[in-house]
């Protein structure tokens, strides 16, 4: 086991049953813990929260090319703290990890970056907003106008994002409960980005337009110890309405959902309101992963079939998981993104 593997072992222990997926169920130690009732403050909360163990800036996008071909794109920056403090230089305990992907109906391109905090190689500044790791960046004059870049060995992208709606606070004004035992995170989204830019793929450059959805979440122990993974849906319907829903798989499943109307009104739904059932499985990277789902939110008349655009959208990164664009049919039509973690070999 080399130094790198050791790092990942501590950074993200793989599916250790006692610690939930990727160590997200690990004990809190001296880290800060989300509490209900704290109002999110912007632009400050766009930045990093080093007192919390884990945090991410998570963007997914559904796009189409000039010939109508659908594409998906992911850009994620994770922050993981070894200790609840910040600092300058190599001594800082803040570690950063970036994931980028482009999904086409036939192919899925993935890249990963790791960096130490404190030396300028990776970080997040709230205002003017900039999040970066190496040459990947999501930055702009403010949170509503961002330029997003990433590159791997076989792909790159450079797209502009323009917000056309408000920020959405999930759960109780951004306090999002993750288990019956009370584990929670701070969680807000910007699901109203218009996107335009260029994908660079092995076949050449492709101009694309579409919609992007940015999730912001931070916590110190977002999962209960028995929760081994989750299935997370961000769905954008043709009506302009949107829905976020997740199932946390544990001894008993825990679900939550947010209904986002076309005009930006958010309604949170408690455990049990949202349900998702696998309809079809696909073998990828030696595991069986559900790539067709029936997702229901009866309170809003939602009963849809969610189908992966490319069932092989496996993120072969330090902590592997499935993440890719989906199409929606049934009571509503549209596109979205699906993320599934904790599917063991």
């Amino acid at each position: 086991m080399n130094a790198k593997v050791i790092l990942l072992a501590i950074l993200l222990p793989l599916q250790a049953a006692a610690q939930g997926f990727a160590g997200l169920g690990a004990a809190v130690d001296d880290f800060a813990v989300p509490v209900p009732g704290r109002a999110l403050e912007f632009p400050a909360d766009h930045g990093a929260h080093p007192a919390y163990r884990i945090e991410w800036w998570y963007l997914t996008a559904n796009m189409t090319g000039p010939d109508g071909t659908p594409y998906g794109l992911q850009w994620t920056l994770f922050r993981s703290a070894l200790a609840p403090r910040d600092g300058q230089g190599w001594e800082t305990p803040q570690l950063w990890m970036g994931h980028a992907a482009v999904t086409t109906p036939e192919a899925h391109f993935v890249a990963e970056r790791l960096a130490r905090g404190g030396i300028g190689q990776a970080g997040v500044v709230a205002d003017p907003f900039a999040a970066w790791i190496d040459d990947w960046a999501m930055a702009g004059p403010d949170f509503d106008q961002l330029r997003l870049t990433a590159s791997g060995a076989e792909f790159a992208y450079d797209v502009a994002l323009t917000a056309t709606g408000p920020l959405i606070r999930h759960g109780q004004d951004g306090y999002s409960v993750k288990s019956a035992a009370g584990q929670a995170s701070y969680y807000y989204s910007q699901p109203f980005f218009d996107l335009a830019g260029t994908l660079t793929l092995p076949g050449g450059d492709i101009p694309v337009t579409g919609r992007a959805w940015l999730d912001r979440e931070w916590s110190s122990q977002p999962l209960a110890a028995d929760q081994t993974g989750w299935d997370w849906f961000s769905l954008s319907f043709d009506t302009g309405d949107k829905m976020m829903g997740f199932v946390l798989r544990g001894t008993t499943d825990y679900t939550a959902a947010t209904w986002i109307s076309a005009d930006g009104q958010a309604t949170a739904f408690p455990d049990g309101a949202f349900a998702a059932t696998p309809l079809g499985w696909h073998e990828v990277a030696g595991r069986d992963v559900p790539v067709t789902w029936r997702a229901r939110l009866p309170d809003k008349g939602v009963d849809v079939t969610v189908t992966a655009l490319n069932p092989d959208a496996w993120m072969q990164t330090s902590v592997p998981y499935w993440e890719g664009p989906v199409t929606i049919s049934g009571s509503h039509a549209g596109v979205g993104y699906l993320e599934m973690t904790g599917y063991d070999e």
């Binding site: 080399n2 130094a3 050791i6």
Partner: peptide, 22 residues
């Protein structure tokens, strides 16, 4: 974190961790 995989013969016995290294 940035060293190419396979570089450095640092072998850590059970119990050693990157937190302690960094």
């Amino acid at each position: 974190l940035t060293a190419p995989s396979g570089l450095g013969p640092v072998r850590v016995d059970a119990g050693a961790d990157l937190g302690a290294f960094l």
